[in-house]
Design a binder for these strands. Structure first.
Length: 299
DNA sequence: AGGTGGACCCGAACGC
DNA sequence: TGCGTTCGGGTCCACC
């Protein structure tokens, strides 16, 4: 569930604590985290590395070491990171790894569902690994309506499914796709390639606005996510559609509807986000159950 | 080849 | 009350 805004919030909070620090002692408690490699082997590789930078691509947290090697952390659904003075964190049955830094602080990794991954890459492997999996950064200046249109072109999948594909745009998940589509007033089931230039432009802006707003509120804490100092994000209070089935649309008051799209629970406003243009819907209705006037004209 | 659905996990919510 | 079942969600993979 951590999506781009949550990972960026974590990056911003950890960066000043990590950059320049050495990984003094590394304990990997869950072999799934580094599969197929041995936890003790990966821990030994990490010990002694000094952090040069903390970056992010999509939902990946990128720990760059002075050696050029890179630790790619993906939180998947329930991963989270805490930073605190050594020994100050309470025991946690879901703690999967702990890194002791050379300033006497700990970075603890927690993951209830154990989907998260720590991937140690050699310098020459990093760019290709990320390029294979990720499209453009939605908050970069290079993410434009034209670029998005290129990625959606000729795709017959629902636009929601296309946006969940990390190669279309990096960093969107189920929550912020729904929020972006609501802002753009685009129905989640619209075939991706069917969007016109104006809709693409609105979607580009909707994606950026949804993500920026969420970063400003330190992300969304529904269950497992928290910032590295243990605080909750506040974006969940501002969702326009996600999880709001039956509640009135903030724009028009119509009750938010829930459907399935891209294999995911999907919330949208059935009035603001139309599958068919209004005129086409009216035409179909009158074809099925003719009104007085259309009965007159077609008879 | 692009699109879809299942597997991986586990706690919470739900149903009887 | 208690137990079994369903659900969710990011990514990969198998299959159509």
């Amino acid at each position: 569930m951590p999506e781009l805004p949550e990972v960026e919030t974590i990056r911003l909070a950890l960066e000043p604590h990590l950059v320049g620090r050495r990984f003094e002692d590394v304990e990997i408690r869950d072999p799934r985290l580094v599969r197929p490699f041995e936890p003790t082997a990966v821990a030994a590789e990490l010990e002694g590395e000094r952090v040069a930078a903390l970056d992010r691509r999509g939902k990946y947290l990128i720990v760059r070491f002075e050696s050029g090697r890179v630790l790619l952390i993906h939180l998947r659904m329930t991963g989270s990171l805490r930073h605190a003075a050594a020994g100050s964190l309470a025991d946690d049955p879901h703690r999967r790894a702990v890194v002791k830094l050379d300033d006497g602080s700990d970075v603890a990794y927690r993951d209830v569902r154990r989907f998260g991954t720590w991937h140690l890459l050699e310098p020459e492997e990093v760019d290709e690994y990320l390029a294979q999996r990720l499209g453009r950064e939605p908050l970069d200046r290079t993410f434009t309506a034209r670029r998005l249109a290129e990625r959606l072109d000729r795709r017959r999948a629902p636009v929601k499914a296309a946006l969940l594909d990390q190669r279309t745009v990096a960093g969107l998940g189920n929550i912020y796709v729904d929020e972006a589509l609501w802002r753009a007033e685009v129905h989640p089931l619209r075939p991706a390639a069917s969007l016109d230039a104006d809709e693409i432009a609105r979607l580009t802006k909707g994606i950026r606005d949804a993500l920026r707003t969420a970063i400003a509120r330190q992300g969304s804490s529904l269950r497992d996510y928290s910032t590295p100092d243990g605080r909750r994000g506040r974006m969940q209070e501002r969702f326009r559609v996600y999880g709001r089935e039956g509640e009135p649309c903030a724009r028009c008051g119509t009750p938010i509807d829930k459907i399935r799209a891209g294999g995911r629970g999907t919330w949208y406003c059935p009035n603001c986000q139309r599958l068919q243009p209004r005129s086409a819907q009216a035409a179909r209705r009158s074809a099925k159950r003719p009104s007085r006037s259309s009965r007159h004209s077609s008879a």
